[in-house]
Design a protein around this nucleic acid. Sequence first.
DNA 1: CGTAGTTTTGTTTTT
DNA 2: CAAAACTACG
Length: 758
Amino acid sequence: MGYLEKLNPQQREAVQHTEGPLLILAGAGSGKTRVLTCRIAYLIEHCGVRPWNIMAITFTNKAAGEMRERVDGLVGMGSEAIWVSTFHSSCCRILRRYIDRIGYDNSFTIYDTDDSRQVMKAVIKELELNPKIYKEKALLGKISAAKNNLVSPDEMEADASRWEEKQTARAYRAYQKRLKKNNALDFDDLLVLAVELFEKAPDVLESYQERFRYILIDEYQDTNTVQFRFVKLLAEKYRNICVVGDDDQSIYKFRGANIMNILNFEKSFPGAKVIKLEQNYRSTQSILDAANEVISNNSGRKEKKLWTDNGQGTRVRFREFQTGYDEAEFVAGEIAKKVREENRSYRDYAVLYRTNAQSRLFEEKMIAADIPYKLVGGVNFYSRREIKDMLAYLKTVDNGLDDLAVQRIVNVPKRGVGATSLARVQNYALENGISFYEALQDADRIPGLGRSLNGIRKFTTLIGRLRAAGREYLNVREILEMIISETGYVAELEEEGTDEDKARIENINELVSKTADYMEQAENPSLSEFLQQVSLVADIDSVDPDGDYVLLMTLHSAKGLEFDYVYMTGMEENTFPSYMAVSGEDSEELEEERRLCYVGITRARKELTMTAAQMRMVRGEPQFLRASRFVREIPRDLIELEGETTDTRNFMKPPEVSMDRIMKFGTVGAERGYGSFGSRPVRSPRGQAGNHYSLNQFRVQKADHLDYQEGDRVRHVKFGDGTVQNIKDGGKDYEVTVDFDTCGVKRMFASFAKLKKI
DNA sequence: CGTAGTTTTGTTTTT
DNA sequence: CAAAACTACG
């Protein structure tokens, strides 16, 4: 009972408004998870709602796990009957049970992005599309967008006017056909087919409507059209739907998220109650001020302003460096120092960036500084080659119709079955309308296989043995171990013994322990269920809250998390906001980037540091960059620069001169769209010199000539003397290669290297 | 058939 | 600067 008293009035109202549609507009850090969990407890304890009548949908499995844990603590008995999961897992669970009603087999497998690409490649070949024009990635993107908007291949074709659109629709249809033939669904299908199931089988829908009388949706601002449809169908009958979201944190438009779902909630569910949570319990006022300032540049928001009584805290720090290298060194160095000297933990820190590609430098510096870290995202554990191989074996054992899995491993490890033989088998399968695996079993009857036949036999007997073992006495872990030993996969890696191979063995061992974990945790474990669970995990799900390490991740992955100390890195135009968003004519995209920035800022509890580099390598090319507009949208007096004191902002010299001012009158000229920002009073247009953001030069000037040439002896401050080997005009700067006497050949940029002829 | 080397291509963000 | 896709050779 005590939990109600701990809530503020708005939170309590949200918990107690149990009947009818409810929209909770929850600003960052306003305690929405607490509201959701208390609400569940309240429903059960005070309203007599039975646990199995409640469904809660979260964005990631991690969030689901955390919520489940907190609900367990509050409710105790029976809480396991509550469905707490992601959209994808919920749909998957429903489909596992009923998908046969719409013509699929209940033992379907789930394809990841990589698998989908393989399928699409085959489709492009089949339809004889010009691969120069129709890239599988682009096609898949369009198909995914269509699915998220519940557009079928037929509808797409009907809407198509241009030739290419017609072709895309054809590809879409062929792709679906292939998936179905393989008894596979892609990520989007999980949602689309669940909706299709509900629409085609009213009795199934009805049974779920009866079951889920109280529905709660977290991160509602990131739902897309299919998800909305799914929720709407489920909630239609009892209308006890509670959604929590923050339009300012909508950052998944590229994935089809429809911000209208939250903005129009009251229209979709007439009579909806709306409650705003604006008190922030997470961050300091300084951090919130910065966040509020940045986000206020967006239009079409639901007006709200976060406040806190946590106290002012220190100002947001901004540091600019010459290169991304220096930036990473600073971040790593500072974390190492603070942990050492101020008794902080690594887990208090997060390093955020816009794209995964930026993680490399940080990783390197973390290793150099001996800082334990965890990289979230990037190459997913389950998409590593060795893991995919192992999973392909498991999938083949589980579902013989999954051609893709079979094709992946027929010849792994090498069994002497090459591309030509595989093509023959494929043909045979096609002609006889059977699956690839069935064709392999028929290999004797396929002409022209020659030596491959042996390998194929080896393969099919192995799979046969595995299947028999699985049916009779082995569990998931044991099957995997059998695969490992029978194929000699690990043994082969051990022989090679390079670092990479060792890492692969590690990964395989990790997979084995994951199967062991699964065996312990599952109620009635099955291979299919294991594979399904595995394909729906996000990288963030594996972050252990007790682990003491610095987290490195994209701003997107950071959503829903919080840290004492946050570094937002790569705060440069064209990096963040990304080049795509800046050059695109669509201002929507820029607003989404700004929301992403808002998400980033509000992750910080105590201290936020923004960093930027003046130059970084992008695609092997040096790029010269200037500070992000988002930094400049934070008023100058909320920012602390290098060399300034850390304490309160009252000491700040020129008050209320904000950064966009500086941009207008300062070094870099106003660019497109820049002049249109709000009209803060101009105090001193000339005051820019003193409060310039960077203590360094803003832009690197390319020298019009160099006072040394190839063959000359030069001196470098750090590397000493050397001979110039090569000078290349890189457009914005000269790239100089020097062979140093003491430390060998280095390549550098003339304007940074400051080489002196001797 | 398998491998090693070469060329090309490409970048947001993720369940 | 990668990874992926191709190509040519053993």
